[in-house]
Structure formats: structure tokens, C-alpha cells
Design a binder for these strands. Structure first.
Lengths: 243, 243
DNA sequence: ATTATTTACTGGTATAGACAACTATAAACC
DNA sequence: GGTTTATAGTTGTCTATACCAGTAAATAAT
């Protein structure tokens, strides 16, 4: 039996091959700029058809992890300036990448009538109910941010506090099968008000970084509005731009 | 013979199908949100195998033109939220998009030895000389930001004050033929110091948005480091993210 | 030695078919 | 009428194979 891939498992073979290749690259077994095994060799090694290997490799090429050269081979791409906040990252992921431990303190979990600005941003009708989830985000045991999330109730009728304690993004993508595909963020500097100062354990009027994110599902359906207030002394926002 | 696709032609069939689908969408024959013909139907219509159709459709899905729903069909995606600050924008372009007039006040145009942090960020050797260009950026006749740009002298040996008064980006890309392809920005909130407060015409300790941008040429050669300090009451940074 | 040619590799394109998973509708049942 | 059950249609995954086109190195011809 072939121990490399698990068959009769809900994970597609091509996906497992993707993970295998990414891991080998991570472990430096496949080096940057060097050729990876040919598609035919991989298909023999994994005992799958070459088309299946191709599907895996094509995905990684699209993701910028590999690049192909016709007649020569497939190579490991240089890392773009070390992968930053590309893609949508949750607070948890974000902190992990920064090498910090993270936790949360749930301040509120309510279903309310959406405030005017939120209703507009989420394209809701008159009586649009939304979840209002307020959390203090903690990194390395010190408060990092206050985060208030608004999500239409109709999109997630069965959201519970338990789920909120885990990863909402993972719940939405994995359990509900909805893909969050796009977001716009508005970032500004402000002076902390009394309440923010208290929660964040800083002096009033200290500068804070305010980030408002509006996320969309695959079909451009507005999915959430998140308003975050970060301690300016602890948090910098990093973004990469490609032409 | 099938008139829809040209066989015995160097254009791959899947590519011709992509073009066909894009054209039908353009012509509104396939409407936004509506289902396009199923993969099996397309494969019969074009007299190709379903895998070939799939390759075409997959490419368009990756490009965001279509989206699939398992068990239901493949649909035409809405056009993405109107193109925002995607790509690198100069201050001038940025203000233009915000509907403001812009101008600049040149404070300094020098060639200096790079400060330690800049030398490191630009990958310069010991005696790396850099241009140091300091400007007050003005929008609608009021100061918006202080901007300090550092660029290696060796990359632009003939930079003049005149060019700085125009668009440096245009000079680099159009006249020198170098492509700026990537950038990383670090955004943080700060309190304005005395000097910044004076230049920006705000009170000291007011919050300001500090943005540091490091741009790269096509081959990952560091090209510039720009440090900007924006008035928080006048400027918000907007960024879009795609998965 | 230099130059063609062959050969063996690479990825690129395409076929024809199979079964699984999911969805919506129609039909059968109670 | 309301519920369950088939059924047909969709995309998702995968196989086994074939031939094309580009690359590079070994081989043969000059």
C-alpha cells in the first residue's frame, strides 16, 4: 500500500499532493530555484495518474509557489517578500505570524438591529438583524485591540458563542462552505477615547490604529463589517502591493 | 465541420473556449449571476471533451470571471468592486482619485550617505549614497502629509529637481524603462512631534498616520524607501484584498 | 574539433470515460 | 396537503492514454 496518500478519505488526492509539495518546500528538501520531481515521476511515486499530479502542480503554480518551464521542468519559486498579510487573515493567524500567542475576551454576543452605517454597508433591508460580537483581542497576555464584528443573521442562522470562541472564518469556510473572497479595509489613525483607553490599558488620547474591514463572499455578497481599534504602540499594519 | 473552434491552429482549444465565454459575457448573452451552459453541454457544442471545457472554465474561475456551485452550475460573477488603490499610486494619483487637487512644497533635495536603517532596507553597501527628497504634500491647498523619499543614487544617476517636481514614477518607468513591480507598506498610528505638527498645521501630539513604503523593481531590487506622515483628520488609507 | 542528428527527457494539450457528491424537481406515498 | 423517495442534471475527482513541442545531452557524421 502507498503510505504517502490516504485514499478513501474525503481529502482529494490532488490536495494531498499539494500539501506534500508545500511541506517539502518548507523543509527545504525542494530548494528555491531547483527543479521538483517531474510530473511523471510524481505520478509513479504517488501511484496516481499524471493528470492528478498536474492538477496539484497547477494549483501551486497559480498560487505562485511553483513555476513551470516547458521542456525543462517545474521549479520552486522564490518566496515573495516573505508572505505577509496577503489574503484575509484572522486576528489569530495574524498574531501567529508575528510570533505571538493570542487569546480573546468576549465582551458581547448579541443579535441587534443593525446601526444605520452597518445596515448600509451590509446591504440590509429595514429590519436587518445582525450579530454584534465585541471582543478584546489579547496578544502575549496584553490587550492588543478591541474588535466589533457585525454579520447578517440571515447568513449565519446558527452562530453560537462556542463558534465565536473558535475561528469564525474556519466555521464559515469549512462548515458552511461559503468562501470569503474579497475585502476592503479602511485604516486611519485616531486618539483613543476613554472607553478604548480603559480596555486597551493605555492613556486617553494616545494614538490608536482604527481599521474597518468589509468582507465579501464569493458572489460579492457583503458578509461582515469589522471595526477594530489597535494599540498603536503594539501594532503595525503591513500590506503588500503587486502591480 | 464545427465552425465555433478552429482546430489545427496553434491556439489551444481551451483558450478559444475561454475567449468565446468572455465574449458572450461581454455581449450580455450570458448575464451576470445567471448560469452558463453546463460543462457537458459545452463539450457537445464545441465537440471537445469535457476535460477541455473544464480547463477553460477553471481558468475563468481563477480569473474571477465565473464561479461554480457544485450540483447547480457555473455562473457569471459580478464585476469586482470598482478598482480602488490597487497597484502603486503616487500621491498625485491618490489625491486625484479622491477628487482633490494636489501640489507639493520641496523642503530638501540632497544626496547623502544613507542612514543605517535606510541602507539596510535598500541593500546598500557601506558608502551607499542616496537621494533624500523631502516634500510637504498639499491637497486642496491644505497640508496633507510630509513625505521623505530615499532612492539609491546609482539607480538614478541623473535625477534632478525638475524631475522631482513632476512625477518620479513616470520618469522611472517611462524614461528609464524600469518597472516598479512590488511594494510593502507598514502603516502605523503615532502622535505628531513638534516638527511634524508645525509642517502639517496641527497641534502637537495629534494622531498622525505614518506609512513607510519600500518599493521593488521587477527583479526584486529595492528601489526606494518612502516615509510619509499623514494628517489623521484628513487621510484614510484604503486597501483591498483578494483571496 | 565541430557540427548535425538522434534520443530521452520535460511540460502542454486533449480524449473518453467513470464514479462521487450535491441540488432541484418530479413522482410516489401516506 | 404534506412528506418521502426516486431521478435527472450539475460540478468534483480521477484514470489511463496519446500525441505535441520544447530542452539538453549523448551520439553520429563531417
Amino acid at each position: 500500500m502507498n503510505p504517502l496518500l490516504k485514499k478513501n478519505v474525503p481529502l482529494p488526492l490532488y490536495y494531498q499532493i499539494e500539501e506534500y509539495l508545500k511541506q517539502k518546500i518548507e523543509e527545504k528538501e525542494f530548494e528555491v530555484g531547483k527543479m521538483i520531481p517531474s510530473e511523471r515521476e510524481l505520478s509513479e511515486r504517488f501511484e496516481v495518474s499524471r493528470m492528478t499530479v498536474r492538477q496539484a502542480v497547477t494549483n501551486l503554480v497559480n498560487a505562485g509557489v511553483l513555476y513551470r518551464e516547458k521542456g525543462k521542468g517545474t521549479y520552486v519559486a522564490e518566496k515573495k517578500i516573505e508572505q505577509p498579510l496577503k489574503g484575509l487573515t484572522s486576528f489569530t493567524e495574524d498574531m501567529k505570524r508575528r510570533g505571538m500567542t493570542s487569546s480573546s475576551l468576549l465582551l458581547a454576543f448579541d443579535v441587534i438591529e443593525a446601526p444605520r452605517d452597518v445596515r448600509k454597508k451590509l446591504d440590509l433591508s429595514e429590519e436587518g438583524k445582525v450579530y454584534c460580537i465585541q471582543r478584546i483581542r489579547i496578544a502575549d497576555d496584553k490587550p492588543m485591540a478591541i474588535e466589533t464584528t457585525f454579520m447578517p443573521q440571515e447568513l449565519l442562522p446558527h452562530l453560537t458563542e462556542d463558534i465565536v470562541h473558535g475561528s469564525i472564518y474556519q466555521y464559515v469556510e469549512h462548515d458552511l462552505g461559503m468562501a470569503i473572497s474579497q475585502a476592503r479595509q479602511i485604516i486611519e489613525a485616531r486618539a483613543a477615547d476613554e472607553e478604548e483607553a480603559e480596555y486597551l490599558n493605555i492613556s486617553p488620547h494616545s494614538p490608536v490604529l482604527h481599521i474597518e474591514r468589509k468582507s465579501f463572499l464569493a458572489q460579492s455578497v457583503p458578509f461582515e463589517v469589522v471595526k477594530s481599534t489597535y494599540r498603536a504602540d503594539r501594532y503595525k499594519f503591513i500590506t503588500d502591493i503587486d502591480r
